[in-house]
């Protein structure tokens, strides 16, 4: 069959998600954010949560997430998304309240809010993009930056004696009694994307059902910050990031 014979509505098996706005994102070519946005838009639609979803956007590259996914959003101050989400969840029970945060937002400036929201077992889903760098401000070191990794503020590579160690915050959150689901995923291959989607679905289900805090860490690329092509970034991530940040469920109860 010729392509034009195949390209018919009845044969369509994958469409651009309805809740993803018809608008180009500001993200760099190949950025993982776009994939995760798409997954979230798909899931909210598939799970019938469009009317009950409230997202909390971070400060960082994803600050404009509210411009791309067609649900209600609050833009939080840097690091404070879990506190904002706490109130939204407590005052709007039964809603899907999720925060979308990067590694600087969640594991540096917002560490206290993250840990305490999780420790209280707030019924929120935290989507955590870990690309080991501050993207928006121009590629500075994040708490999750690997040792030896060059950034704008570690131009000779991160040194443990100067900068401490790459922070595995999901491992910390796993220890807290308030969390019900902690998982680490990636979106560099089609198979990984499917797993991430299943993970976020579970986190969203937990939020709505009031089971406690779920965290889906997504080990991601920042090809602009890493100064590589998108494809090279994926390879580099699989080779280096996964060693420090191994994929899989850390907690699922």
């Amino acid at each position: 069959m010729k392509p034009e014979e195949i390209i018919k509505p009845e044969n369509k098996i994958y469409s651009r998600p309805r809740l993803l706005d018809d608008r180009n994102t500001h993200y760099c070519p190949g950025c993982s954010h776009g994939v995760v946005h798409r997954i979230i838009a798909e899931l909210i639609d598939e799970m019938g949560l469009e009317d009950k979803a409230i997202g909390v956007a971070p400060v960082g590259c994803a600050v404009f997430a509210y411009n791309y996914i067609d649900v209600d959003w609050v833009e939080a101050a840097h690091g404070r998304a879990p506190a904002v989400a706490t109130a939204l969840s407590r005052l709007n029970p039964g809603h899907l309240v999720f925060s979308y945060q990067g590694d600087g937002d969640l594991s540096a400036i917002g560490t206290a809010e993250t840990i305490h929201a999780a420790n209280r077992g707030e019924n929120i889903a935290i989507i955590f993009i870990n690309n080991g760098i501050y993207g928006m401000t121009g590629g500075q070191m994040a708490p999750t930056t690997l040792l030896g990794m060059k950034t704008a503020t570690t131009p000779y590579g991160r040194r443990a004696d100067l900068n401490g160690y790459p922070l595995r915050i999901s491992e910390l959150l796993e220890r807290l009694d308030g969390t019900c689901y902690i998982t680490r995923q990636a979106v560099h291959t089609a198979a990984a994307v499917r797993k991430t989607k299943a993970a976020i679905r579970k986190a969203f289900e937990n939020s709505v059902a009031g089971r406690g805090t779920s965290v889906v860490e997504i080990v991601s690329t920042c090809n602009s910050g890493w100064k590589m092509t998108p494809a090279q970034s994926n390879e580099w991530m699989a080779e280096h990031m996964f060693e420090r940040y191994p994929l899989g469920d850390l907690k699922n109860i």
Binding site: I6, N11, R16, T25, R194
Partner: peptide, 17 residues
């Protein structure tokens, strides 16, 4: 659908027979 799964800009739609 592998292409559509990894596309960060949701530019790809997929058909199959």
């Amino acid at each position: 659908s592998s292409c559509a799964m990894v596309c960060p800009d949701a530019c790809i739609e997929v058909y199959r027979v």
